[in-house]
Design a protein around this nucleic acid. Structure first.
Lengths: 151, 151
DNA sequence: CACAGATAATCTGTGTGCAGATCAAATCAT
DNA sequence: ATGATTTGATCTGCACACAGATTATCTGTG
């Protein structure tokens, strides 16, 4: 029977909405990442910013916070906050930019690099397991269409 | 062309990781939903709980907070907090359950029902536009495999 | 009946996510 | 070069997301 829909909508039932599915999938993925990174005392966003900073430092000049945020796809304010936490943990260091006294240049410490290396292994393993049920390339193709520009 | 990778990983570059794409896609979707619901003074989670409560109330007995959380796929604590906000806005009402004095039965007010109806229209339009670039059925099929059970 | 264990709701505390505002330094236009 | 505008970083404040603890209540077993 028509499952009692007196609304001109499918909302609420088995939650067919792609948006709700997307949201729940991401929350589950976040929980998986949180669990994978917990032994390293890193959150997912902390990991993304740490690894992004490491990548930028290796493939060019060490970035300031705005450049790091652009690379990682995070809010500038978030980046400021999270980078401060990473600094407090001794994983990155912030120095004044000699070219722009407003900016702070971000460098990975040896401890940060070691932590990032372990985290990358853990995250990629968790990622592979999470997406194992589906065709990853196909999903990536669709998400690329939806993710939009970095900001 | 090997773009200078001395790590045994692809992390950081153009962000090929399905996890990161999933994360960014969901954040962008959240911004779209926030914008669509802003005129109605509702956040996305508030909308989900309001609409879920309405659906449950129409298709059976009005739920308590645990049942609502299970339906909506939200944390019990979140549900408690957000439902309190919805109550403060006059969109739902909480009554003591005569059968279980621990529980609170949630009912939609007329204002809540009106608000939910408008919100559903706005959200479904925004959803359709957001997912227009891709094959929605195909994406839903993949997300179903990944979203996991409601909790 | 009594009591252990489960359940409903809430509280504390940490960590995002983001809008809006502030402030100082850099850059642009005249 | 001087005033207007941008830009980099930070702050306030609100709203999730979730782990862990608390309180009150319910249920099952003897």
């Amino acid at each position: 029977m028509g499952d009692g829909q007196d609304l001109k909508t499918r909302f609420g039932g088995p939650a067919e909405s792609p948006g709700l599915l997307l949201w729940r999938t991401t929350m589950r993925w976040q929980r998986v990442m949180t669990a994978a990174l917990a032994p390293l005392d890193l959150t997912h966003v902390q990991f993304v910013l740490l690894a992004s900073a490491m990548w930028l430092g290796r493939n060019g000049e060490p970035p300031n916070q705005v450049q790091l945020a652009a690379q990682a796809g995070t809010e500038v304010k978030m980046t400021s906050d999270v980078v401060a936490r990473l600094e407090a943990k001794g994983l990155i260091a912030r120095e004044a930019d000699p070219r722009d006294s407003r900016a702070k240049v971000i460098r990975i410490t040896p401890a940060g690099a070691a932590s990032a290396q372990q985290a990358i292994v853990a995250v990629e393993a968790a990622d592979a397991a999470f997406f194992e049920p589906v065709d990853e390339a196909q999903l990536v193709g669709m998400l690329r269409q939806l993710a939009g520009e970095i900001r």
